[in-house]
């Protein structure tokens, strides 16, 4: 069965080049990609993840609001009892924030320059577990 991925942009950031390119690449890697567009609230992302019953969730944030937004998305998932779904993050994320984000429950972080191939590969590995 194809892997189902939700690609979402939380917050107000409008830089969606990366999210769209990743969505297209995952589609071409044989996944079913649900793309929700800009300005998603944490609760709407969690709702989408729940209703679509996706295998994994990718968030894209370039505005610097990642610490707060990731926490809110993860909390919203917990409220809906879907905290077992893995969440990865892409965007401009300073290295010093990695530890905090990972301890929050973010499974992987892809910074600028990460290859599409690697992202697809990592998703397959994470979902398999």
């Amino acid at each position: 069965m194809p892997i189902k991925v939700l690609v979402a942009k939380p917050g107000l950031d409008g830089h969606d080049r990366g999210a769209k390119v990743v969505a297209m690449a995952l589609r071409d890697a044989g996944m079913e990609v649900i793309y929700t567009g800009l300005r998603q609230t944490p609760s709407s992302i969690a709702d989408a993840a729940l209703q679509e019953d996706v295998d994994i969730i990718g968030l894209s944030i370039l505005s610097g609001a990642h610490n707060r937004l990731c926490k809110k998305v993860l909390d919203a998932m917990k409220e809906r009892n879907i905290e077992n779904k893995p969440v990865f993050l892409g965007g401009i994320i300073p290295e010093e924030d990695y530890e905090n984000l990972k301890s929050m429950g973010i499974v992987d972080i892809f910074g600028p320059g990460t290859s599409l191939e690697l992202i697809a590969k990592r998703i397959k590995e994470i979902v398999k577990k």
């Binding site: 194809p2 969505a23 297209m24 995952l26 589609r27 071409d28 890697a29 044989g30 996944m31 079913e32 990609v33 649900i34 793309y35 929700t36 567009g37 989408a48």
Partner: peptide, 10 residues
């Protein structure tokens, strides 16, 4: 590829 882009939720 069997993949799909599902964008209707937007």
């Amino acid at each position: 590829t069997g993949g799909a882009f599902l964008g209707d939720r937007i």
